[in-house]
């Protein structure tokens, strides 16, 4: 692997799609979860819960310490405010970090990943190598998390392998 690049896969997490009910608002989601639900493509974390903005009134709720009843509990807390669909089994999440991480992702994603267009706290739902991805930047290392549907994981790894070999050229 190229210098300045670390790629790993997150092993354990809970993930759910949260969609705002009609006549409910962001604030109610935030109040129910005690974490602000961002109105734009950014993410906010607190209390072991990360709310990742993926659309208007739509988020991925993420926890790295899921209990077995995590999504059911989430649904209960959001009753009347938002619908919850468990996605914990449906995605894989890659952690791509290091000084070359941005270069690598930029070769795949046709969105501007350089600051100030994109930085820690930013989220983008887009496409890499014909595979739908949700990218969110964790820190300024930089570290990116890239979530994609589980079925594509093999093809995504193949793209990562190819693209990361020629990072230095």
């Amino acid at each position: 692997m190229a210098k300045g690049l670390e790629i790993s896969e997150c092993q354990r997490f809970g993930l759910a799609t949260v969609m705002l009910r009609k006549n409910a608002n962001h604030a109610a989601v935030g109040a129910a979860l005690q974490v602000a639900a961002p109105a734009d493509p950014t993410w906010v974390a607190s209390n072991e819960l990360t709310m990742i903005g993926t659309g208007p009134g739509m988020w991925l709720a993420l926890t790295e310490t899921p209990s077995q009843h995590w999504s059911a509990t989430l649904a209960e807390r959001l009753a009347g405010v938002a619908s919850v669909s468990d996605q914990s089994g449906g995605y894989v999440i890659f952690r791509i970090a290091g000084s070359s991480a941005r270069t690598l992702l930029q070769r795949g994603a046709f969105i501007d990943l350089t600051p100030p267009a994109f930085g820690a706290g930013s989220v983008a739902t887009t496409v890499i190598a014909h595979i739908g991805v949700i990218i969110w930047q964790i820190d300024d290392v930089p570290t990116f998390h890239v979530a994609l549907f589980r079925s594509f994981a093999g093809s995504f790894r193949e793209w990562l392998d190819t693209a990361s070999v020629n990072l230095t050229f």
């Binding site: 659309g55 739509m58 739902t125 887009t126 496409v127």
Partner: peptide, 8 residues
Amino acid sequence: YHAQGCRN
């Protein structure tokens, strides 16, 4: 339809 984005 933003099929590969926010699905709106």
